[in-house]
Amino acid sequence: MCIECSGIHRNLGTHLSRVRSLDLDDWPVELMQVMSSIGNELANSIWQESSQGQTKPSVDSTREEKEWWIRAKYEQKLFLAPLPCRELSLGQHLLQATADEDLWTAILLLAHGSWKEVNKTCGERDSCTALHLACCKGNVVLVHLLIWYGVDIMAGDAHGNTVLAYAWQPSSQECINVLLQYGCPNECSPWCKNKMGKINKNN
């Protein structure tokens, strides 16, 4: 991405776009996994599924033309792929996609979803969010994406277990690192403490 386009992306705000320099910024291994797992082809199949007859700007286009395209793509979501026709609500579909580790579908649903929809829980008995499920799977890519799209990192399940407790199930240090980085309370239920004790003994 050129300097001009990166400046436009930064002006959108981190709730819409995140920009990092290859030379000036740190690239934690967890973030590199996100970038390599998604890539331009998958991202554009969602965010640029149809150009609606518009011509994508070239390197020679004016700043105004580039800014119009970027804002249309990410702010107005004019080129976003449509949601599949399913009986499930968006929130329920996101829970299913996360459980199946279906990255493409999860990103599409997050792009379309509201804060309330992406924070849908499995039900009163479990009250797990998609973030709990991603942590249980040890899927650091989905964990990153769900946090970026506003899934509540402070939410507990019906038994009071945080998402951090779920990250301990697969002993995913990468997920744990990301959760702590974004401010997840470093508190564990009795179940989680018992799990941590067993891990420490094995080490």
Rank of each mutant, 00 (worst) to 15 (best):
M1P: 08
M1C: 10
C2Y: 04
C2W: 07
C5M: 06
G7C: 05
I8A: 11
H9E: 05
N11T: 06
L12M: 14
L12T: 07
T14W: 09
T14P: 05
V19C: 05
D23I: 11
L24A: 08
P28S: 05
E30Y: 07
E30S: 14
V34R: 06
S36Y: 05
S36T: 10
A43Q: 10
A43M: 12
N44H: 04
N44I: 02
Q48V: 07
E49F: 12
T55C: 04
D60I: 15
T62Q: 09
W68Q: 12
I70M: 12
I70V: 10
R71V: 04
Y74G: 05
Y74R: 10
E75R: 13
K77N: 10
L78V: 07
L80C: 05
A81M: 10
L83Y: 11
P84L: 15
C85N: 12
C85E: 15
L88D: 15
L95P: 02
Q96S: 11
Q96L: 14
A97Q: 03
A99F: 07
D102G: 07
D102R: 13
L103W: 05
W104N: 05
T105H: 08
T105G: 02
L109V: 07
S114G: 04
K116E: 15
K120N: 10
C122H: 11
G123H: 13
R125W: 10
T129V: 09
T129F: 07
A130V: 06
L131I: 13
H132D: 06
C135R: 00
C135D: 00
V141A: 05
L142R: 00
H144F: 09
H144E: 13
H144K: 14
H144S: 07
L145S: 01
L146G: 00
L146N: 01
I147W: 01
Y149I: 08
G150V: 01
V151C: 08
D152E: 12
I153E: 09
G156Y: 00
G156D: 01
D157V: 13
G160M: 13
V163Q: 00
Y166K: 04
W168V: 07
P170W: 12
Q173H: 08
C175V: 05
I176R: 00
I176F: 01
I176G: 00
I176P: 00
V178A: 06
L180G: 02
G183R: 12
E187L: 06
C188P: 02
C192H: 04
K193G: 02
K193A: 09
N194D: 14
M196L: 10
G197V: 03
N200P: 00
N202D: 11
